[in-house]
């Protein structure tokens, strides 16, 4: 196990195509870090640079005190789990897991012990003789993890390993991943664009946007205090409302809005859409006196979503809402940065 540090890591594919614009982060030994961001923001690229599958244009990556910039993947002591599993199709499950160990020249007995142990942990014992194509997606995913585990690496790298699974299996695998991390305690970097995955798995997460780290922090901390309007709008479902007010942006989470009498309304919206979800009801609308949802002057949308208790009577027309000023966030509309009170 090892600490990993990224020091102003940059990546350009060509001289005018830079995709990572300097990411810095200290990852502690044994930490589970999630890299979260929308498609194309450079998550995979960053992970692949740590793996050694992509050259590093600038900055430094240190794994376990060793600068690995110019090391081959096999010399970095990492193991990677790919989105499409990348199992060797012609090898049995056992051979898939054993292959890396054989190349490393481990003794047969040692290889067998490790593979059996990993198979035990991942409940793959009865599949060891099968070929990948004879297994379901979830089982293949476990084999891919097994292949990483048997190597006993310093760092696990996961690139959207759950995105090919159905919703139910994803929840189950999420649990297994957490259990695995508790058990092995290996430093892990996990890429995803799914915020639920990020919130549930991460000890700390790094939210990326267009090749930059917008915010690094524990999930609840990121949720409670988004550092930028991007993070505010990316995390949470529906995301934080951003309402232009007095030249700034007022941010308020949908669940922090509550219906009230018209006289005490802090916000009045015209309801556009009501989504009863059972546990609660989400109401979408726009601020009244502003029929197109776009206030004059700045172009930001003044659409508002509110998460109301299921028993709240939601109906078309006007809805008076109020909020606790303690739950308000302020942002600078130009830089998108958070303004601390």
């Amino acid at each position: 196990m090892a600490a990993v540090s990224l020091k102003d890591v940059r990546k350009s594919y060509t001289s005018d195509l830079q995709v990572i614009h300097g990411v810095s982060m200290e990852i502690k030994d044994g930490e589970f870090i999630v890299i979260l961001g929308p498609s194309g923001c450079g998550k995979s690229t960053l992970l692949r640079m740590v793996a050694g599958l992509e050259t590093i244009t600038g900055g430094e990556i240190v794994i376990g005190g060793r600068v690995v910039n110019n090391l081959e993947p096999k010399d970095r002591d990492i193991a990677m789990v790919f989105q499409n599993y990348a199992l060797y199709p012609h090898m049995s499950v056992y051979d898939n897991m054993a292959y890396g160990l054989r190349i490393r020249g481990l003794a047969k007995v040692e290889i067998d012990t490790r593979v059996q142990k990993a198979a035990e942990i991942l409940e793959l014992k009865k599949f060891l003789g099968r070929k990948p194509r004879e297994m379901s997606g979830g089982q293949r995913q476990r084999v891919a993890m097994g292949r990483a585990i048997v190597r006993e690496p310093q760092v696990f790298l996961f690139d959207e390993p759950l995105s090919n699974l159905d919703a139910k299996l994803r929840v189950q695998m999420r649990g297994e991943l957490q259990a695995l991390h508790r058990r092995l305690g290996t430093t892990s970097l996990f890429v995803t664009h799914d915020q639920v995955e990020a919130m549930t798995l991460a000890q700390r997460m790094i939210v990326m946007n267009a090749g930059r780290a917008e915010q690094i922090g524990a999930p609840l901390e990121v949720y409670a205090r988004p550092a930028t309007t991007f993070v505010a709008g990316f995390i949470g479902s529906p995301p934080m409302n951003l309402i232009p007010k007095e030249g700034r942006l007022l941010g308020i989470r949908p669940e922090h809005l509550e219906p009230c009498a018209e006289s005490e309304a802090m916000l009045t919206v015209a309801v556009d859409l009501i989504e009863p979800l059972g546990a609660d009801t989400i109401v979408y609308g726009h601020i009244t006196g502003d029929p197109d949802g776009k206030p004059d002057g700045d172009g930001s949308s003044a659409r508002v979503a509110a998460r109301l208790p299921a028993n709240a009577v939601a109906q078309a027309g006007k809805l008076a809402l109020r909020y606790d000023p303690a739950n308000v966030h302020w942002y600078d509309p130009q830089s998108g940065k958070r303004i601390e009170q």
Binding site: F82, A86, Y88
Partner: peptide, 27 residues
Amino acid sequence: VPDELAEAARVDGASPMRFFVDVLLPL
């Protein structure tokens, strides 16, 4: 053949020729 297969082999420590013999030829 998916690129990830070659990358997985690289991470596993296979040299290019080893990847060729162990993975590409059987496929």
